[in-house]
Design a protein around this nucleic acid. Structure first.
Lengths: 213, 213
DNA sequence: GATTATATTTTGACACTGTCAAGATCTGTT
DNA sequence: AACAGATCTTGACAGTGTCAAAATATAATC
């Protein structure tokens, strides 16, 4: 109605595939929504403002996402993929470092990811989705796999004697992750305000979790 | 206008002090708001529904709380007091138990409090107040004191050799608390769904944090 | 190529939210 | 009795998520 139908109509100048009226609205929504969340958190993402930003009417997004919840889940899912690419590689990749060093590396990377993408992290592990909302089956699966990878690495580290063997791998994985997650949240939610000590806290966490050599 | 002015007008049958029109609206609001949060979380508390519940017009609460934020802070503050009475007593009180047992007791009590009052806990340590909102000076002070008590106990436990001495008391307090907090949040926010293993997780946390004897 | 079916988008509407401004009402003090 | 201040109400505004129905564009079929 406004300036939407002027330029990108029959001139197919996009690299990917511009279908129908808008041209891959789904991806545009996902991208803009992620931006908005990155700027002001989940609270700053409104369906209407998002539609505005993409240049489409208020209810258009509802033909691509059933819910606001479903949109959030899609973004969170992307977040898990991003995290995996940065953090998840560490256990398998570096063959020269021993378990202790790898673990330290992982912890630091994990905390750094949460610190650099606080809003994304909040969405991925926050109650907006997991308690108040309802996680998409797809998201549930992605996050399950993510924890599963963590669990199996913890098992390896236990066998190497890097992590304590007093408790089952499951419990150990749960508690070690809880430590990382707790630290991230305390910083992320504005309770620990001194972000300058982040690396030092990271090192302390590692020392407390690893077995005493 | 409705049934408010019928009964409790000149007949002063209340135990406390019924002032002005409603009679200690401040306390009534605080109480009902806490109830509502307990039922459905912070998300379920709306100023209008709260006013309705108390039997007063939409904007009446705004003469006792500047903001929704201020109301939330007041509730959170009460939460800290409750927590202190249940959990905070443990370090000082029990003189017969040694440090290790006391620490285990504390961890269990802390987790239990969060598990029994999930919404209250979420409010106390959530981003609604600390990041999105803005904590009242009074609330800031209360929470600061709470952490201070934790810190000084950690110092004692380090001197007793119960907690590791590798890092400063501050860092140790931060990381140990992060572990508890992280575990509470993971359960609380619906990420760890198996609440039946709570005690076992609690024990694992204790074993991982304490020094190896 | 015209017609039908389907995918996509829009307009209108509803119930809800927090909160401001102005006015009404009650209480305690002078 | 008159006033001042506390307390409460009504009206209003901008914002939210999302449903239903209508409009439009594209794809498939004849």
């Amino acid at each position: 109605m406004s300036d939407k139908n002027t330029a990108p109509d029959s001139s197919d100048n996009s690299p990917a595939k511009k279908n129908y009226h808008h041209g891959d609205l789904y991806q545009s929504l996902l991208k803009s929504a992620t931006e908005m969340i990155g700027e002001g958190g989940v609270a700053a993402l409104s369906m209407r403002k998002l539609a505005d930003r993409v240049g489409v009417s208020r209810t258009a997004p509802y033909h691509h996402f059933k819910d606001k919840n479903e949109l959030l889940c899609a973004i969170a899912e992307q977040g898990f993929a991003d995290q995996e690419q940065i953090v998840g590689m560490i256990p398998a990749h570096n063959k020269t470092l021993d378990g202790r060093a790898l673990f330290a590396l992982y912890v630091q990377a994990y905390i750094q990811f949460a610190d650099k993408n606080p809003q994304q992290y909040d969405l991925m592990f926050g109650r907006d989705i997991w308690k108040n909302g309802c996680p998409t089956p797809s998201l549930t699966e992605v996050s399950r796999r993510s924890f599963q990878r963590w669990l199996s690495w913890v098992e390896t580290l236990q066998q190497q004697g890097v992590l304590s063997n007093n408790d089952s791998a499951l419990r150990t994985a749960q508690i070690t992750w809880a430590t990382l997650h707790g630290l991230c949240r305390l910083i992320n939610d504005g309770i620990y305000t001194e972000r300058s000590n982040l690396e030092e806290m990271s090192r302390t966490a590692v020392r407390m979790l690893l077995t005493t050599q």
